[in-house]
Amino acid sequence: MTRRTTTHPDLTRPETGALFFSTWRVGTPVRQRQTVEAIADTWQRRPWPADGLLGYHVYTGHDGSTLLHYSQWRSEDAYEAFVKTHRQERVDEIDVAVPGIERLWLGRYRHHRSGGREGDTRVPGCVVIVDVEFEGPDPDRQRAWVDAVFEALESEPTPHPGGIAGHFHLSTDGTRVLNYAEWESAQAHIEALAAPGDGIGSATELWHRVQNWPGLKSSTVSRYEHALGLVPD
């Protein structure tokens, strides 16, 4: 069966072979809550759909309009089998409950590298998604950019204490990097952004290098709150 949980996902599960992030626009905070409950109801009234699905989590955007979806799979094949046999009936039922949902984007990723304070057991109060896009596919560039971020973080003279961990994912098409960053609170992240420098990080040469990487096309930052976890019972 399907069990609802408030526990955040473990972003470093070794058995995860494929990760999917997607966003929906629903329009208002009320519709955000309605959609979360429609997803929960639709899933909980059905058996867990596949052994290959490890967990499915939904987050409400602090913009009051969007939802972020994150799912962990053993393989892309397991996901494709779910799409063929189970996905559409669930989507249809959710759309009946909350008409007019806009499904904006679906991305396929692999976990690449995580970092944080060793032994930090704080529960994130805010999840910050940093979505970086490059000009064209280049897996070597993806990895090199993430390594440069870690160099800058490790040399950071004034790290904000509200940061918990960062989990970097590489898109399978070679064009994007997505950082799922765990923060103690949204306010802590807002304060870190307001500190001297251009975004998170001090005004160092290493951060300048990260922010001006050759081929860097765009970078967006969005804050979310964990709203729903669904796992096999």
Rank of each mutant, 00 (worst) to 15 (best):
F82V: 00
G163T: 10
W43M: 06
T60H: 10
S114D: 12
V231R: 05
Q211D: 14
E80C: 08
L178P: 02
Y56D: 11
D173C: 04
L206C: 10
W43D: 00
H8V: 07
D63Y: 08
N179C: 07
E151V: 13
V83Y: 12
G27L: 06
D63S: 01
N179M: 06
S75V: 06
E118A: 13
F20G: 13
E15T: 15
H167K: 04
Y79R: 00
G119K: 13
T175F: 00
Y70L: 14
K217M: 13
W213Q: 10
H69V: 13
P139H: 07
S202D: 15
Y180A: 00
G215Q: 09
V36Q: 03
D63F: 03
H167S: 05
S75A: 05
Y109F: 08
D233M: 05
H57C: 11
P99G: 03
E182R: 03
Q88D: 15
R13C: 06
A186R: 07
D95G: 07
Y70R: 06
P214E: 12
T28E: 00
Y79W: 04
A81W: 07
V132R: 12
D10A: 08
Q32C: 01
H111Y: 05
V177C: 02
R108K: 08
E191S: 01
P196K: 08
W105K: 12
E133F: 07
G136L: 05
A192T: 02
V26M: 06
R223T: 11
Q72A: 15
L19A: 04
E184F: 04
E151M: 11
S65L: 10
M1N: 04
G107T: 09
F82N: 01
G163W: 14
T16G: 07
T16R: 06
D233P: 00
D140G: 10
A18M: 05
F20L: 15
R103C: 12
P14Q: 15
G201S: 11
A195Q: 15
L170E: 09
A188M: 02
R25E: 11
E184Q: 07
H111Q: 07
Y56V: 06
P232K: 07
G100Q: 11
W24E: 09
G55L: 06
D95C: 09
G116K: 01
H57E: 13
A38P: 11
Y79K: 00
L19D: 01
A97C: 07
T2N: 12
V30H: 08
W105T: 14
D173F: 04
G199M: 06
L230C: 10
H69Y: 07
N212P: 06
W213P: 10
E184P: 04
G229E: 12
V36M: 01
Y56H: 14
E118L: 15
S65G: 08
G17I: 03
A194H: 04
L68M: 11
P232S: 11
A40P: 05
A148K: 13
G107V: 10
A40N: 03
K84G: 14
Y180R: 04
W24Q: 01
T2P: 06
A227N: 08
E118R: 14
W207Q: 09
R13Q: 15
V98C: 02
G119W: 11
Q142L: 14
P47M: 09
F20D: 11
G125C: 05
L11R: 08
G17A: 09
A50T: 09
V130W: 06
E76I: 10
T66A: 12
T28S: 14
V30P: 00
V210F: 01
A195E: 15
W48T: 02
C126F: 05
Y109I: 03
Q72K: 09
A192Y: 03
H112L: 13
H69T: 14
